[in-house]
Design a binder for these strands. Structure first.
Lengths: 226, 226
DNA sequence: ACAAAAGTGTTTACTATACACCCATGG
DNA sequence: CCATGGGTGTATAGTAAACACTTTTGT
């Protein structure tokens, strides 16, 4: 890896962020509408170029803060997309990130800025560039993630009912789950702690839970093989 | 993502490949010795800059072919490392790849080229740049991979005995497995097919198996949660 | 004949799944 | 007092884990 071999022509490095939330029994993804060609008017992922002095994750967090006003959400690197012709104007490599947010943290961006809005993740509008592929891959990652960790609480507000958490799972996994088994299983992991508060509605109030920061979930997962 | 905002200063995009094999009851990683400063004499991962017209995976495969003479091995993207100071001379972002090879495919590289050799993956020499971190992350990925898929045969020759496969699992997971349970479990997945050949040695010959290309293993994994 | 590795089944413990009723509240 | 969602336990089935002996070959 001698430095002398740095190529003359360099690709640009971009980051795009797939932000999910769950609201009203739907998995949503946050999109921005493009103002310029190509794909003017099309929806696309929030993104921006990585600056020369910032890390990849810093770039993703900066983009999120600038374009959607969100901070302090769950963020992990998703995949790096680098097909030579994914952007026809120039060679642009995109380090995609994957974010989970509670709807209340980002819920008002479409009021502040008409160019940013939530869209149904399973049925998004036609997206610019290869962003459709990126969203599809992010959904796949999200579903895997829920199947071997208890990450769904990242999509909910600070406090939530077990029914809200179960709804998030059902919406993302697209199947209905047994209420008793779900509650037993999620409580047995000890990643949640009960609060003294209740959510009041039309019927019997539901106890609110929160994520327990002490508890470590990683490693509790039993292996599948061999 | 208007094109006009492409920054003046661009990072260089590199790829580094972590190639694993199992031989003589040891997990090995393929390293190249650096000839130039910085880290002259240190070992490092095979790598190279991504060319402007090639995809990321093409770049990784090219690097593998050029530096290690290997083709047609299992390759997947691992992670993109982009800390601003990971290379002190310039901003270099590395898209790391993860490869599995049978020792016989790559076994003679250290003869052809004194600058390339296998090293113990769990106890590698001091590595240049952040390559120690990259190897550690690749090991983690490898172990997860073996725990929920049956990928270990990618580390073995075309045909192999069940004992050799079990050894690969034991070496990577660092625990001993029950022979009967292992055989039952791996055969029940139907990813292997028995051949009519045997491996002859000092004792009773062992039947040789091969990976069954028809069989799809993905999706057979039972979920852990919820 | 014996040393060494290959190969094979069964029993037991545990985990996942299926399933139905009572409880608390608002209207 | 009734409609609605919240909250709880048990029995059964299926999967994982523990465990020991026979077979085959080379020396």
């Amino acid at each position: 890896m001698p430095l002398t071999t740095i190529p003359n022509e360099l690709p640009a490095v971009h980051t795009d962020v797939v932000i999910f939330t769950v609201q009203e029994a739907r998995l949503d993804v946050l999109l921005t509408q493009r103002r310029h060609q190509p794909f003017a008017g099309h929806w696309s992922l929030p993104g921006g170029f990585v600056r020369i002095e910032e890390s990849l994750e810093q770039a993703a967090r900066r983009v999120l803060a600038e374009q959607t006003g969100t901070r302090q959400l769950y963020l992990e690197q998703l995949y790096t997309f680098g097909a030579p012709r994914r952007d026809l104007r120039a060679r642009i490599i995109s380090v995609a990130y994957f974010a989970l947010a509670s709807a209340d943290k980002v819920g008002n961006t479409s009021h502040d800025n008409a160019w940013v809005a939530w869209h149904p993740a399973f049925d998004p509008p036609l997206l610019a560039f290869d962003h459709g592929e990126i969203v599809a891959y992010a959904i796949e990652r999200l579903r895997y993630k829920l199947e071997y960790t208890a990450a769904a609480f990242q999509l909910l507000p600070e406090q939530f009912t077990l029914r809200e958490l179960q709804n998030a799972y059902e919406v993302i996994l697209r199947e209905s789950l047994d209420k008793r088994n779900f509650r037993r299983k999620i409580l047995s992991t000890q990643i949640l702690e009960a609060t003294d508060d209740y959510r009041y509605g039309d019927h019997r109030p539901a106890r609110l839970y929160r994520f327990s920061h002490e508890a470590k979930f990683e490693g509790q997962a039993r292996r599948l093989f061999p």
